[in-house]
Design a protein around this nucleic acid. Structure first.
Lengths: 187, 187
DNA sequence: GTCTATACACAGATAGAC
DNA sequence: GTCTATCTGTGTATAGAC
């Protein structure tokens, strides 16, 4: 059996960092090859196209969030406050690691008006996020207002990430997450 | 005097639409030439580079917002409620015309980690926006909390634009603007 | 499986005719 | 001022040696 130096997992994870920093269109296969220490030839051995790679990266990102962040919402042995704090902490780390930012939101603004290719994955991410928030808030808010509460929280966080990126200051995100917590305490 | 078929103003405005739809990196000079009905040669006669064109476009966009939207905040003959409603209406139209979206936020996420080129313009936009909101809310909130109120409103709106773009549904933005109004009524 | 070399299209930008 | 033609670099993707 040949020794595999770089696993597919590692390629995906490193590619994700590059896409998140540079965006989809700005990132070339050469950039990705450099970042992973491979050649373009090897890259095309693993993935048939840049588009397929991006889809795989997005799916990996969504799965990671689902397992590590959104899943906390369903740990009903914890109180809503405890769940929000735990989710908040994990989300904060995820959105501020390396240079920071949310690959999903970046990709929405970059591609949504240009191609339909990634729409399904992008929508799934926000759908899972909204459901998780609704689960945590369901004891505190009426079912009719839950969707808008969740959308407000997501919008506040994503918008704060824009400001965070612009000013290179994580405080913007911190404050948004704090506002989320207050929405749970208020009633 | 030769007849100028396409004025610089028109080139800038049409380029803005293309940049907003496709993003900075994805947009080629050929795309811009097609959109304006000119040739690349003519384009480079007016602008020395794609970068210079983009800066000009961003500045035009900021000036437009400043004159048409943010200026309403300082019309102190109107009540805060009237000013918010007027600003909200204008902002809604600006963010939903054509395919919709906010060129400034798009450009932040696309370029902030890649190059410093447009940082100054991008920061100026949010600075002017924040000041305008603070002006409208100054009678209702304490000076210490005004910056965070303004940032929360901006974040909510920009995040809602992401969701609007993703689902191609302006209702997300509408709801965010409605929440802004409620922040003014609440106290 | 991993490399080098390369095909082919298109990017940004320029030259020079009219 | 506006066009056509073109330069040079880089993009995605592939072929074929090892």
């Amino acid at each position: 059996m040949p020794i595999i130096k770089t696993t597919k997992e590692e390629i995906i994870w490193k590619s994700l960092q590059v896409f998140r920093k540079q965006g989809y269109y700005r990132t070339s296969m050469a950039d990705l090859a450099t970042a992973t220490g491979l050649t373009k030839g090897v890259f095309y051995h693993h993935f048939s196209s840049k588009e397929e790679l991006m889809k795989t990266v997005l799916q990996a990102m969504i799965q990671w969030f689902d397992e590590k962040v959104f899943s906390v919402a369903y740990q009903t042995t914890l109180s809503p406050q405890e769940r929000i704090d735990k989710m908040t902490e994990k989300a904060y780390k995820a959105f501020t690691n390396e240079l920071g930012g949310c690959l999903i939101a970046n990709t929405v603004l970059e591609t949504a008006h240009v191609e339909e290719t990634f729409l399904e994955e992008l929508k799934l991410f926000f759908q899972l996020w909204e459901k998780a928030i609704a689960k945590v808030f369901e004891e505190k808010y009426a079912p009719q207002v839950l969707p808008e509460i969740a959308q407000q929280i997501i919008a506040d966080i994503e918008g704060s990430i824009v400001l965070m990126q612009l000013h290179k200051n994580p405080e913007y995100l911190q404050k948004a997450l704090h506002r989320t917590r207050k929405l749970l305490d208020r009633i």
